[in-house]
Amino acid sequence: MMSAVDTSILDSLEFDDQNFLVNATDWTPAVGEAIAAELGIVLGERHWVVLNFCRKEWEEHGESPTIRRITKGADVGTKELYDLFPGGPGKIAAQIAGLKKPTGCV
């Protein structure tokens, strides 16, 4: 996809077959910007509230937060979260944050 952000930073990193970063420690905010750009999302301040929360959850608990955890912990409403990350907020936020897909039913 054509975008204004230079995404060549992604070429030197390892991704799984669903385009999730293999090593969460390879992630930097610039990597996040690049993944988002590839997915067609321009990151704004509210995106970063969610992404920083996801990174913090991963650092503290070693796993990606579910949508429910994000809405409870990051002060972002369900509707807003779906608007920020269209097409599946839990999965896509985790992907941009360089984490694995969240697991859990809610």
Binding site: T7, L13, A34, L39, P86
Partner: peptide, 19 residues
Amino acid sequence: MPGFNREKVQATGAAVADA
């Protein structure tokens, strides 16, 4: 080492706002 697969994004249309 598999890098970011750009074709896959276009193929699935995942996360593209107006898809």
